[in-house]
Write a protein that binds this DNA or RNA. Structure first.
Length: 652
RNA sequence: GCUGCUGUAGCUCAGUGGUAGAGCGCACCCUUGGUAAGGGUGAGGUCGAGAGUUCAAUUCUCUUCAGCAGCACCA
């Protein structure tokens, strides 16, 4: 006999070998029906798994959070069966859960297209309806490899071959179909239910490596029921409305065109946001002891070779021949020789900042030196990587490099983390993920140097009290980095702020200072950006605020709308006063009804609307309607303007 | 860069092997209306680009460019 402890502390005795399903049935008939899986000593398992020793258990039903994980994973299996039924010869590879859903990667000579999804989904519903039981089996390793190899499932065979020797080879059957799987699964396929939908197909490299074959990935989402599914799909649609590319066009902020792929054409309204944000961060930096500089855009390769960019980063750079182009029609623009002496558009500011540091002799008393630049950088990004403002080829970072001693690393890093917090707080971002990215394969500098750098950042993060995760292989080639990630409307995570510790570049570019001992020493370099790039950060802000930017950033802060043309003069007077108070205001004297004007400016996301008619003109007041509110307040003009001007102040 | 999808008016989108339509926007006219679309008239398109098939291509085929989703890469 064994003793089984339930979540409420109750202990029940059973024969060894009892299963979760038996226990559920013993507790109540309805529980047996509702149970999907079981926690055995904290381990989520199949209900069919025999329990042989005393254990703490807890049954999982559809109401629990885990249910979604189970439904999604089972759904992936159902999809794989459907695909292999409809498209014989397709190999299955891996099919994990992801946030809100699942995917499965298939290998097939002809990739799937979106048109196939409907048929696959239909077949899936048939499979679910049929409701086969999931049966768990443990196979002999070699037999499993032989089985899958024999079946032509080369990817599965490879997966098994790569599993650790200690790992059981588990197979789950659902009717005639089976798959290698870690499990657990629900009792039957039926329990997947109907709340699923296939969403998209995409290519994905086998094992995430672009040297490998490209597989077809099918994404799906699955929920407890149709209602939850529908809610999710609606939420997706809502999120898409906040897409900064869509809003940018609707609000006339910026555009892109193919002649300057990946670079932004900022329109007057968009550039207001840009300038406001830049002004804000500039004030913050200045008061945090940074000095602003400006360095060249186009720099000779010699410097990029010396810095290591030419060796490690070249494929991301734009190169320019340093030769006067031929003016002759029909002649080559530049000679063959031109390619022997190239220049490059800077992809980063750091080497140039070292040049500024290197002018003259620096004393340890000068350190730390914090050089900031709103440097315009160009990166030759892969075409498929470009994404609105989030991923561009020409970008401006709120960049700075701190030159300091090793002893100053921690205090400088802590100060930077505090700055990031302050700024993100000002701008309304609380949900920020912090990552410590460790040495990549393609790196400059010795392992000892990297040990020191990684530990330096780790220590600084701990001192700042920030929670962070570590990611292997994600660092920059010259040093490890702290990344501050923020999510966009769709839930994609983007790196914004960054702090990178660099012992390599000062060495390569010969930076030094005179220490208290009178000898030359290498400064340490901290590369850091708070917003990251202005482009990306503005994109994130637009999505985060759904275009309804805080007053200080709104391109047009106030529109004055007279009710009829009789009050145009008074409206003009209001406009002048608003402008005099520093408010970005416009007037709408078009021959339209007030309803129409209200609608139009609301849709345009203008934060404040001053409506003026007979009563207002008479009393020198304005009827204020704020964005998002249906109410109006009538206030004396001067008071209204004073209040608005006060509210429109930048956070710093 | 790789895989799939898309490309028609300023915007959102219909549509067809016989050179095109709607709504919104825009211009003009009527309307002067108190808080989310008043009415009328009109202008506006090499149907992304190039080649091929065809008597005829915006429509079919190929190539190419760009956009979108994902992968890889990354701020």
């Amino acid at each position: 006999m064994i003793e089984v402890t339930l979540p409420d502390g109750a202990v029940r005795s059973y024969e060894a070998g009892i299963t979760g399903m038996d226990i559920a049935a013993d507790i109540s008939k309805s529980l047996a029906k509702a149970a999907l899986a079981i926690y055995i000593n904290g381990q989520l398992s199949d209900l069919s798994l025999p329990i042989n020793d005393n254990a703490e258990i807890s049954l999982v039903t559809r109401k629990d959070d885990e249910a979604l994980e189970l439904i999604r994973h089972d759904c992936a299996h159902v999809m794989a069966e459907a695909v292999q039924t409809l498209f014989p010869g397709t190999q299955v590879t891996i099919g994990p859960n992801i946030e809100n859903g699942f995917f499965y990667d298939f290998a097939r000579n002809e990739p799937f297209s979106t048109e196939d999804l409907e048929a696959i989904e239909k077949e899936m519903r048939r499979i679910v309806e049929r409701g086969a039981e999931f049966k768990r089996e443990v196979w002999d390793r070699d037999e499993a490899i032989a089985y899958f190899t024999n079946k032509g499932e080369m990817y599965k065979a490879e997966l098994i071959r790569d599993l650790p020797e200690t790992e059981e080879i588990k197979i789950y059957r659902q009717g005639d179909w089976l798959d290698l799987c870690r499990g657990p699964h629900m009792p039957t396929v039926k329990q997947v239910g109907t709340g699923f939908k296939l969403l998209k197909v995409a290519g994905a490299y086998w094992r995430g490596n672009s040297d490998n074959a490209m597989l077809t990935r099918i994404y799906g989402t699955a929920w407890r029921d149709d209602k939850e599914l529908k809610a999710y799909l609606t939420q997706l649609e809502e999120a898409e409305k906040r897409d900064h590319r869509k809003l940018g066009q609707e609000m006339d902020l910026y555009h892109f065109q193919k002649e300057a792929q990946g670079s932004v054409f900022w329109h007057p309204k968009g550039f207001v946001i840009y300038n406001q944000l830049e002004g804000y961060i500039r004030r913050r930096l200045k008061d945090h002891g940074y000095q602003e500089i400006k360095t060249p855009q186009l720099i000779d390769n010699k410097l990029w070779e010396a810095s290591g960019h030419w060796g490690k980063y070249r494929e991301n750079m734009f190169v320019v021949p340093d030769e006067i182009p031929s003016g002759e029609e029909g002649q080559p623009v530049v000679s063959e020789k031109a390619f022997e002496k190239l220049m490059a558009l800077k992809p980063m500011n750091c080497p140039a900042h070292v040049q500024v540091f290197n002018q003259g002799i620096k004393s340890y008393k000068d350190l730390p030196i914090r050089l900031a630049e709103f440097g315009c950088c160009h990166r030759n990004e892969a075409h498929g990587a470009l994404h609105g403002l989030m991923r561009v080829r020409q970008m401006t970072q709120d960049d700075a490099h701190i030159f300091c001693t090793e002893e100053q690393i921690t205090s400088e890093s802590v100060a930077f983390c505090a700055l990031v917090r302050q700024v993100y707080d000002d701008l309304g971002f609380e949900d920020v993920r912090v990552v410590l990215a460790l040495r990549p394969e393609n790196k400059a500098g010795s392992d000892e140097t990297w040990d020191k750098a990684e530990e330096g950042l780790r220590e600084a993060l701990r001192a700042s009290g920030l929670e962070f995760e570590e990611e292997e292989g994600e660092g920059a080639f010259y040093g490890p980095k702290v990344e501050f990630h923020i999510r966009d409307a769709i839930g994609r995570s983007w790196q914004c702020g960054t702090l990178q510790l660099d012992f390599v570049l000062p060495e390569r570019l010969g930076a030094s200072y005179i220490g208290a001992d009178g000898d030359r020493h290498r400064p340490v370099m901290l590369h850091r950006a708070v917003l990251g790039t202005l482009e990306r950060f503005i994109g994130i802000m637009i999505e985060s605020y759904a275009g309804k930017l805080p007053l200080w950033l709104a391109p047009v802060q106030c529109v004055v709308a007279p009710i009829t043309s009789d009050f145009d003069d008074y409206a003009q007077e209001v406009l002048e006063k608003l402008k005099a108070a520093g408010i970005r205001a416009e007037i709408d004297t078009r021959n339209e009804k007030i309803n129409y004007k209200v609608r139009e400016h609301s849709v345009a996301k203008v934060p404040a609307l001053f409506v003026v008619g007979a009563r207002e003109a008479e009393n020198k007041t304005v009827a204020i309607r704020r964005l998002g509110s249906k109410n109006q307040n009538v206030d004396p003009l001067d008071e209204a303007i004073k209040a608005l001007a006060q509210e429109a102040k930048a956070p710093y």
